[in-house]
């Protein structure tokens, strides 16, 4: 069981300068961003699939999750998704499953 303080840290809203900004390629910002794990889950469903591929293979998602949200467990799960080389909607669905599952798990543990 993870301590409530650690869970609330992962679930917190971060300042806008530390949010995750979705790009489709180098320097091309989509206008979408996520400042919390909850928003991140939602945006995975909404943003261009090209953006998800761009960030997954650069390692941006795992870096943000580990360094900003401080959830090493989720970062590791995202890292291992890369080895399956998913793309397009398959990537979106698999990433959504991993992140939303972790979000629901943490929310459940925090409330109990």
């Amino acid at each position: 069981m993870v301590a409530n303080s650690s869970i609330s840290r992962v679930l917190r809203k971060v300042p806008r300068e530390n949010a995750f900004y979705f790009f489709t390629s180098i320097g091309n910002y989509t206008g979408e961003n996520a400042a919390s794990l909850e928003e991140f889950v939602r945006k995975i469903k909404e943003v261009d699939a090209k953006s998800l591929g761009f960030h997954l293979y650069r390692g941006d998602f795992e870096k943000w999750v580990a360094e900003t949200l401080e959830d090493e467990e989720l970062a590791e799960k995202i890292r291992s998704l890369k080895s399956l080389s998913p793309s397009g909607n398959s990537l979106r669905n698999q990433l959504y499953l991993i992140v939303s599952k972790q979000y629901e798990k943490l929310k459940g543990e925090f409330c109990s």
């Binding site: 806008r16 900004y21 790009f23 180098i26 320097g27 091309n28 910002y29 989509t30």
Partner: peptide
């Protein structure tokens, strides 16, 4: 661009050509 431009208040989107 990701750390210093996108987070600026009022930025809607960015297009970059190298």
């Amino acid at each position: 661009i990701a750390q210093s431009v996108a987070p600026l208040p009022g930025v809607l989107r960015i297009r970059t050509s190298i």
